[in-house]
Design a binder for these strands. Structure first.
Length: 355
DNA sequence: TTGGGATGGCCAT
DNA sequence: TGGCCCTCCCAAA
């Protein structure tokens, strides 16, 4: 489930998993059958993220030898634009010797090296012709005994490469677009802190022009791309800024601190596959504060799917300062964390630490 | 078995 | 601002 860090991680994953490969694209669910037909048999030559948008570039399989990177303007490239929305997800499965799959975090479900115990049904008429495919004839033989699993759930898109398969469920957006259309989408997106071309000053200028609260502006993808409800709550806490303060009342220097912190936090999130904003010394219980178990259940943090279960990961109930911690004592001052619905989303903050 | 959420965003009003 | 869409999962009944 995505904030921008997840999408960047996915972009990397697709690059390492499929770059240069001719992919078979299908729509087991059927709702992307036309787009799948257009893309299937093309070669993946680019995998990019901008904020929460994922762009996968497909060149003609027999076309000019586009480089795997840096061919974003090639006119014969078609782009698959994907936005996961609130609950879209990629599920990966691959041959047991496909290390990249292990790192395909961000998609909460992954099936690594899973094998079907029953023989795959013969291909039938209809939209699911991609169903199950023995990979026994792969050129290098490395996946000789891997059987592509059946799609599970409402799979909008399936991307099948040489040694892995990726299934997309529940996206908000999933469409094939031209290079010009891609540029038009990007023109409407604010700067992305994870990208090298992310423009701090554009962010600062934009926020400073508006009376809209800083909390709402951090969620506005025109102002800044990639931050979601967790990062906005956490970065405002770390900066000590009252989320309800109008953007124009936040000093530019503080806005730069917020941006710089997002750069660090989101790049870290993309690397580790989970959002962690707490400093080690602020995790766990402290003397003088009740342990979380002593608090009413409704006050307890509950965040699913923030990690992929990696051993040694920071537990999700210690990963945040305020997100999903309504009623719990602030990790710094002990004041109960507040929650309020703002523009349809829950906003968490500490009124003592954030002024 | 049901129903309410969830790290989003679009559209109409 | 409210309604609606996309889908899955877990707690409550």
């Amino acid at each position: 489930m995505p904030e921008g860090h997840t999408v960047h991680r996915l972009a990397r994953t697709f690059a390492s998993l499929y770059a240069g490969q001719t992919l078979r694209v299908s729509s087991p669910q059927g709702r992307f059958a036309d787009g799948a037909a257009v893309l299937s048999g093309r070669r993946l030559v680019a995998s990019e993220a901008w904020g929460k948008q994922l762009f996968l570039g497909f060149a003609p399989a027999d076309g000019s030898d586009a480089e795997v990177t840096g061919m974003t303007s090639a006119s014969d490239v078609l782009w698959l634009r994907i936005h996961l929305g609130l609950y879209g997800a990629w599920t990966f499965a691959g041959a047991p010797d496909t290390p990249e799959v292990v790192h395909a975090i961000g998609a909460p479900r992954k099936r690594i090296g899973e094998r079907e115990t029953t023989a795959p049904p013969a291909a039938t008429e209809g939209s699911t012709s991609e169903g199950s495919t023995s990979e026994g004839s792969t050129s290098d033989g490395s996946t000789s005994d891997w059987v592509v699993p059946e799609p599970r759930g409402q799979v909008r898109v399936r991307l099948l490469g040489d040694h892995a398969v990726a299934d997309l469920t529940g996206p908000t957006a999933c469409e094939v677009i031209t290079p010009e259309e891609k540029r038009a989408v990007e023109a409407r997106l604010g700067p992305d802190p994870i990208r090298d071309d992310g423009d701090v000053e554009a962010f600062v200028a934009r926020v400073g022009r508006s009376r809209v609260t800083i909390a709402q502006q951090l969620m506005d993808q025109v102002v800044i791309s990639g931050a979601g409800n967790i990062y906005r709550a956490e970065v405002l806490f770390r900066a000590g800024v009252d989320p309800l303060r109008p953007g124009r009342d936040v000093p530019a220097a503080v806005l730069r601190v917020i941006w710089d912190d997002l750069v660090v936090l989101m790049r870290d999130g993309a690397d580790r596959g989970a959002i962690v904003t707490t400093r080690p010394e602020d995790r766990g219980s402290r003397p003088g504060r009740p342990p979380e178990e002593a608090l009413p259940p409704e006050g307890r943090g509950r965040t699913r799917q923030n990690t992929d279960g990696t051993p040694g990961a920071v537990p999700s109930d210690q990963a945040f300062y305020v997100y999903h911690r309504a009623g719990l004592p602030c990790r710094i001052c002990g004041t109960p964390v507040l929650v309020k619905e703002l523009a349809g989303r829950n906003l968490f903050w500490c009124e003592t630490c954030q002024t």
